[in-house]
Design a protein around this nucleic acid. Structure first.
Lengths: 231, 231
DNA sequence: CAAAAACGAGAGCACTGCTCTTGACAGCCC
DNA sequence: GGGCTGTCAAGAGCAGTGCTCTCGTTTTTG
């Protein structure tokens, strides 16, 4: 069905689509999503602004494409960082994951803000974004799964009750059958803590306190590793 | 010096300033900061858009005023919620604080996003904002201070090292001399966790997982109370 | 080869933040 | 009281935005 040999038009289209995203990403990195302008992108590419709408039906669609790319870039970074750690050292993998997120965020602050800051429009989170968005959380529970059986909880996990127990058991069955729902939930807590901490640093909520935040970050990564019971 | 009896002009100016903020806050709540338009505010107030610039030199200045008001609204909410708890029950105060933040955030999502989401322009955090912004964190360490001497740490705090030890000791000396730097740091961790968790919920990162997030939130509040050692 | 689909460019609409000028009014000193 | 001064609202206008529509042109398809 799908022709392996694409027509010249299809190749040109694909190439131009990539180039548009490339330029848009450049402007995003420079000025932030707020100031990303379709017309400026078109201008930089030497084409009419109206022609851009043949490739992205709206500004939000362009942004959505950039969001997906950013999620994948972050996912790549984190997954390779985790993969570089020895299998029997979950804490090293944990460190790699957390520092990978932070380092990527500091290298690409505006793209990080696009992912974890205020959702842009009436915040449509299209289906296409949820799989790339799940990569880092999946990697995180993967690290915990890798430590299953060796978890060392100095603070006992509070029992899950009611709706939470149901939600967690569904997720655990699908994602991490090796670990208890309580530990899994602690992983989610640690994930939201990680993003909250990185956001604080990037969005300037640490000014005058833990700035630079390197030491605080490294310390907290260890504390949260303890929290989820990583050996 | 400052005349107690203000001139008609001064009163009119003050009143109009309030009315502008009121209308802007209405539009902010409806549509978000992104779509807040000076011209629309002026239109709703039946005045020329140019006249607005006599009251706020730029759109960012209007937003800054709204940010300060929002920080104070959140601060009021949290402080009264904490004050309503018995002095000898730090955990109740902790719950009141955390749920106060979340409830306020869910009632005013766009204002919350303005405070803890992506910073708007080239992110100027003027001096006027830092005091209102500090109110909730100060209340949070206040709760911990109220439990000083009765803290119960099932998981031992990792020792602070290097730059972190210095930063923390300075902050502890100024804000919470009764508690150790380690526990204080855990309070900051909990604070960033709280904001991260609320942001996840509001910004739609929990869809398909812990949704509704009430049970997860309540559980995590208790876990974090344990984490900082609240009795 | 002809019909159909895709394409780029241009003009135009409604909107934005912001500036500048103009004319009117209120508060002050003499 | 009569000016002078500073404040004020309003209008026009600039440069920019997202987006739509139309119009020739080019490429693919039947």
């Amino acid at each position: 069905m799908a022709p392996v040999i694409r027509t010249a038009r299809e190749r040109a289209r694909e190439e131009l689509t990539l180039e548009i995203k490339r330029e848009a990403r450049r402007q995003l990195a420079d000025e932030g999503a707020q100031r990303l302008s379709l017309r400026a992108v078109a201008r930089a590419l030497g084409m009419a602004s109206s022609a851009l709408y043949r490739y992205f039906p709206s500004r939000d669609d362009l942004l959505t494409a950039l969001i997906i790319d950013a999620y994948n870039a972050l996912g790549d970074r984190v997954e390779t960082a985790v993969a570089a750690c020895p299998d029997d050292d979950p804490r090293a993998a944990w460190r790699a994951l957390c520092h990978g997120v932070r380092d990527w965020a500091k290298e690409h602050p505006h793209e990080y803000a696009l992912l974890f800051g205020t959702p842009v429009p009436g915040y449509a989170a299209p289906q296409d974004t949820i799989a790339p968005a799940a990569r880092v959380p999946i990697a995180l529970v993967g690290v915990i799964r890798g430590a299953a059986g060796r978890l060392d909880l100095s603070a006992p996990v509070r029992p899950l009750r009611g709706a939470l127990a149901e939600q967690a058991s569904v997720l655990v069955a699908a994602m991490a059958p090796e670990v208890s729902a309580g530990v899994f939930t602690r992983g989610v807590v640690a994930w939201s803590q990680l993003v909250g901490m990185v956001s604080f640093e990037l969005f300037g909520h640490f000014v005058g306190a833990f700035e630079p935040a390197d030491a605080f970050f490294a310390h907290t990564v260890e504390e949260m590793a303890d929290f989820v019971g990583l050996p």
